[in-house]
Computed example of a mutant assay.
Amino acid sequence: MARSKVSLQDIAGQLGVSVKTVSGALSGDGSIRMAEDTRQRIRSLADELGYMPNLIARGMRQGVMPIIGIVADGLITQPFATEIMRAFDNSMRSDGLSVIVTSTGSGRSVDASIAELQRLMPQSIAYATMYHQVVDLPAAAQDSIALMINCRDSRGSLPSLVPAERQAGADITGRLIEAGRQRIAFFNLPGLLAGALRAEGFRDAHASAGIAVDETLLRPATRGTYSNQARSLVFEHVAELFGGPARPDAILCGNDRVALEVYGALRRHDLRIPDDVAIASFDNQVEIAARLDPPLTTMALPHRAMGRRAAEILAGQGAPARTVEEIPFRLVERASI
C-alpha cells in the first residue's frame, strides 16, 4: 500500500477496531481506553504501512498547526541575527515544529504580519529584531505575541529574551583590568541601547576594581547614531589620545568593525598590540576577529543561545520565560590583550 494513501480507516479495517481507537493510539490520547496490546498492534501496523498523520486535518480539529510564527523586524538580512533563526529553527525541528517567518517594513505593519501568520493557525507567535532594542508594539499586537526575542516590550508586559549587555561590558572591562590595564579608553556605539548598557558595565568593572573612570576616555566611535554608514571618529580619537603623555594602555571597542579601524589607526602611530595597547571588543565577528594580527579578544554575542532558549520556551520544553531574561555573552580569548 502506498505510503501517502494509508489512512486511519485502513489501519482500523485491518485490525478490526474503530477509527477512534486507532486515532487515540497514534495521537497518545489517554482519554480513549484500550488494552496496551491493542495500542502496540496499532502502532506497529502504522509503522509497517508507513502511515503519515494528516497534520492539516489535525490542525483543523485542534485549532492550531505544528507551526511557530516569527514576526521579524529586519532580522533575516543581518549576519549576526540570522544565528538566532538558525538555532531556533534547528531546535524547533527536533520538537516536530516548523518555523514560519514574516518580515515587517517596506510598508508592511506589525499588525499585518501577525494577521498573515494567524491565518496559518500557529501554536504561538514571537517578535524578533536584528539588534537589541526597546520595541513599542501596537496595542492590538500585545495579545498575539508570546515572546520577544533580542528586544524588549516598551510596556514591560511581554516575556523577553535579550543579551546581557551590561554584564558583558563589565566582564570584558574586568578582563582588561585583570591583565594590568589601568587607563582604558572605550570607543562606544552612540545612540544604541547596547552601547549605553555596556558603558554601565564598563563603569561597574572600574568601581569593583577601585579605579576611577576617566570620562574623557569614553568616546563615540562615529558621529551621530552608530551605523555602518556613519562617519567614523576612530582615527581622530587615536591621534588625540596618543598625541599626549597620558596615553591609554587599552581600548575597548564597541564592536569588531570598530576594532578593525583601531588596529589600522594604531599602526599609523607605530603602536604595538598588545605590548603598547591592549584591544578588546564585542561581537566575535569571526571573519574579522580571527584574522586580525594579533587575533582579537572579543565578547561573542549570545544569538545562538537566544535562539535555543526561545525554542525551548515556545515548545513548552523548559522553564517559562521571565519578563526580561538576559542571556550571557561568551568571552573569546585571543592574543590582543
Score class of each variant (00 low, 15 high):
residue 1 M to K: 10
residue 3 R to V: 02
residue 5 K to P: 00
residue 6 V to D: 07
residue 7 S to W: 12
residue 8 L to Y: 05
residue 11 I to V: 05
residue 17 V to E: 04
residue 17 V to S: 06
residue 19 V to I: 14
residue 19 V to S: 07
residue 21 T to P: 02
residue 23 S to W: 13
residue 25 A to Y: 04
residue 29 D to F: 09
residue 46 A to W: 08
residue 50 G to E: 05
residue 51 Y to W: 12
residue 51 Y to M: 07
residue 52 M to A: 11
residue 53 P to R: 14
residue 53 P to W: 11
residue 54 N to I: 04
residue 58 R to M: 07
residue 60 M to K: 03
residue 64 V to P: 01
residue 65 M to Y: 08
residue 66 P to Q: 06
residue 67 I to D: 04
residue 68 I to E: 01
residue 68 I to D: 01
residue 68 I to M: 09
residue 69 G to E: 03
residue 70 I to S: 03
residue 73 D to G: 01
residue 77 T to D: 13
residue 80 F to Q: 04
residue 83 E to T: 01
residue 89 D to A: 10
residue 89 D to R: 13
residue 96 G to L: 07
residue 97 L to H: 07
residue 98 S to Y: 10
residue 106 S to W: 08
residue 107 G to M: 08
residue 108 R to M: 09
residue 111 D to I: 03
residue 113 S to A: 15
residue 113 S to Q: 04
residue 114 I to S: 03
residue 118 Q to M: 12
residue 118 Q to V: 00
residue 123 Q to C: 05
residue 125 I to M: 08
residue 127 Y to M: 07
residue 127 Y to H: 06
residue 130 M to C: 11
residue 131 Y to P: 00
residue 134 V to L: 14
residue 135 V to S: 10
residue 139 A to Q: 15
residue 143 D to F: 12
residue 143 D to H: 15
residue 144 S to Y: 13
residue 146 A to I: 06
residue 146 A to Q: 12
residue 146 A to M: 14
residue 149 I to S: 06
residue 149 I to D: 03
residue 151 C to V: 03
residue 153 D to H: 15
residue 159 P to T: 06
residue 164 A to H: 14
residue 165 E to F: 10
residue 173 T to E: 04
residue 175 R to Q: 10
residue 177 I to Y: 12
residue 182 Q to D: 01
residue 182 Q to W: 03
residue 186 F to L: 04
residue 190 P to V: 01
residue 193 L to H: 03
residue 196 A to P: 00
residue 198 R to C: 02
residue 199 A to C: 06
residue 205 A to C: 06
residue 207 A to E: 11
residue 208 S to A: 15
residue 212 A to S: 13
residue 214 D to I: 02
residue 216 T to F: 12
residue 217 L to T: 00
residue 217 L to N: 05
residue 218 L to K: 05
residue 221 A to Y: 09
residue 223 R to E: 14
residue 223 R to I: 02
residue 227 S to Q: 10
residue 229 Q to H: 12
residue 234 V to W: 10
residue 236 E to R: 15
residue 237 H to R: 07
residue 237 H to K: 07
residue 238 V to M: 10
residue 239 A to W: 05
residue 240 E to G: 00
residue 242 F to P: 00
residue 243 G to L: 08
residue 244 G to E: 10
residue 244 G to T: 02
residue 248 P to I: 02
residue 250 A to D: 01
residue 253 C to D: 02
residue 254 G to Y: 05
residue 256 D to C: 04
residue 258 V to P: 01
residue 262 V to Q: 03
residue 263 Y to V: 00
residue 265 A to Q: 02
residue 272 R to C: 01
residue 274 P to W: 11
residue 278 A to D: 01
residue 283 D to H: 09
residue 285 Q to S: 09
residue 286 V to D: 11
residue 288 I to G: 04
residue 291 R to K: 10
residue 293 D to S: 14
residue 294 P to H: 09
residue 299 M to E: 06
residue 300 A to R: 15
residue 300 A to G: 02
residue 308 R to E: 14
residue 312 E to S: 13
residue 317 Q to R: 15
residue 318 G to R: 11
residue 320 P to A: 11
residue 320 P to G: 07
residue 323 T to W: 15
residue 324 V to C: 12
residue 325 E to A: 07
